[in-house]
Design a protein around this nucleic acid. Structure first.
Lengths: 127, 127
DNA sequence: AGACTAGTACGACGTTCATCGAACGATACC
DNA sequence: GGTATCGTTCGATGAACGTCGTACTAGTCT
């Protein structure tokens, strides 16, 4: 019944015993590999106005913290949207002290789906 | 302008009294005007694998009937997907006898969001 | 007229989604 | 050690979604 209760901590703890000390930042947040980015997931991630806004903002200025967007939603909703973008492979997050820095995975997306991100950004800029 | 479309038939009936006789095909099925196509709606419409498949197939051969796609879903689900695509402005449907012919709104989409459709199709072709 | 065909309308169902608030965790600073 | 600050996790909730089956409409064909 309690097999999955402590997920993150337990996994991280056992991993530390078995594997060499990897970068903690990357371990904590899981991103899909470039090859594993799925078109439907990317399109779904971009189909929400709030997330489109986040991506458009990141295209202008990269490496911004989650809070710096001043989104009209609560923190938990914010977490949700950034996770959807991250798990779809649209953004990369890494921990920097007490904040998370977000950046667009431009190269990965361009390699996998050439021109897609640019045309979406161009389209988004036309309001 | 009428703001809220309640029943297609009622609207079509009143419209026929006021306006000159338009093409019946176009009246029955409502499509958004090119300027009214919304990016989020298009991306959402394309974010479903079934609909992506429909669009990819239409890109290869236009003006196909709904039934000709042999989708692994029932007719009513089929109707649903084609309606989502139509209402998002991705496809245009017009009645031809007892069937509905579907075609991509390539020009409208290219005008509104240049390059978007092509990059999505290119991305979709990479499986 | 009757049968067939192509698709729609409607209601139901289980799932996913966007959102919230409250409680928690981790880091930085006094 | 206290206390902000930044963000996550955990339900909960209401809306939207994808799917289905049944009943229906509108043409077509014999």
């Amino acid at each position: 019944m309690d097999t999955h209760v402590t997920q993150g901590q337990a996994v991280a703890a056992t991993a530390r015993l078995v594997e060499p000390p990897a970068k903690l930042d990357e371990d904590r947040l899981c991103h899909p590999a470039s090859e594993d980015i799925e078109l439907a997931a990317v399109l779904h991630a971009l189909s929400d106005p709030m997330r489109l806004r986040i991506v458009a903002a990141l295209a202008v200025e990269d490496k911004r913290t989650c809070g710096s967007f001043n989104l009209p939603v609560t923190k938990s909703t914010c977490t949700h949207h950034f996770r959807v973008l991250r798990e779809a492979g649209v953004i990369r997050q890494h921990i920097e002290g007490t904040t998370r820095l977000n950046q667009l995975r431009r190269e990965d997306l361009d390699t996998r789906f050439p021109g897609l991100l640019d045309s979406v950004l161009e389209a988004a800029s036309r309001t």
